[in-house]
């Protein structure tokens, strides 16, 4: 509690700036890792299909 009270009269703006940053960077990290999994899966599927005939 003390921590937030120390941020002065404009605490909202400071927290908003950090919040947007955390959200955007979090989304970027999630996108990169989900994309990685998706592409790996596509390649696995394609390669397993190729060996059939």
């Amino acid at each position: 509690m003390n921590f937030f009270a120390n941020l002065g009269p404009h605490a909202n703006f400071i927290l908003a700036a950090y919040g947007v940053t955390a959200l955007t960077l979090g989304a970027l990290i999630v996108w990169v890792s989900l994309d990685y999994r998706a592409q790996r899966k596509i390649i696995r599927d394609l390669e397993s299909r190729k060996s059939k005939p």
């Binding site: 970027l28 990290i29 990169v32 890792s33 994309d35 990685y36 592409q39 790996r40 596509i42 390649i43 394609l46 390669e47 299909r49 190729k50 005939p53």
Partner: peptide, 25 residues
């Protein structure tokens, strides 16, 4: 993040090549 995005892009291109090969087959 840059390296991870590069790795994804390389995988995407590999998938694209595989898909084209598959279609040709």
């Amino acid at each position: 993040l840059h390296l991870a995005a590069m790795r994804n892009e390389l995988l995407r291109r590999r998938a694209r090549t595989l898909r084209i090969l598959k279609a040709a087959e």
